[in-house]
Design a protein around this nucleic acid. Structure first.
Lengths: 110, 110
DNA sequence: CTGTATCCGTGCCGATACTG
DNA sequence: CAGTATCGGCACGGATACAG
């Protein structure tokens, strides 16, 4: 429980994993899709995901060239979990629409 | 995503839901099983879970009498999600045993 | 036994600005 | 484009003590 939470418990990690589950992406792409995340936080969360072996960075050439982020095979194993959370979250929204707004830590709509 | 995180993203909520999924329990029982949670935080998290309709309090008599907490029918719908997270967390522990110790927010072993 | 009150530390996140 | 640097805030969680 706690271990899982440590790996995917960041504010944006589920969102990032969700988008990466839809295909690899570069920094700016993730930033756009996960707005309004700041570059600093995005870099932090990506580095943590990378440290946990869920995500890998692949450089595509000499700078300036987009750096691609993609799920590792291991990272793909969380997708069902992420999807489960997402689906339940939608149900929860339908049940109590207020859930989307009043929270402080709720900005991303994945 | 964000809505789900708001509902179950507290530090102890997954753990509490897990235990409650194993049967209703009283305050002290939850406190013991979720050690080292403090009474203040336990009360907070339970109240939030209650506000989200996942958990209900039932008084069993005049004080001093144990107050029972149990999942609502709606609360039961998160159990699959919780279980998914838990199972993945175990896998993750096996893969990187370090995940259990270095994190700051990792005390509960559910 | 079931909580509440008070105080406090800090982890997490954010804004802004800057660099290769 | 892909980040890093610096600074700051504040909500969240925690310790301890007390109360019905």
């Amino acid at each position: 429980m706690a271990a899982a939470f440590a790996a995917i418990g960041g504010k944006w990690k589920l969102t990032l994993l969700y988008w990466l589950g839809h295909g690899e992406s570069h920094f700016a792409g993730l930033r756009r899709r996960s707005a309004p995340i700041t570059p600093k936080v995005l870099a932090e969360q990506l580095r943590e995901l990378e440290a946990d072996g869920l995500v890998e960075r692949v450089a595509t050439g000499p700078v300036p060239a987009p750096v691609i982020y993609r799920l590792t095979p291991y990272g793909s194993t969380v997708l069902p979990v992420v999807e489960g959370v997402r689906v339940w979250g939608e149900e929860h929204l339908r049940r109590s629409p207020a859930a989307g707004t009043p929270m402080s830590c709720v900005n991303a709509i994945a």
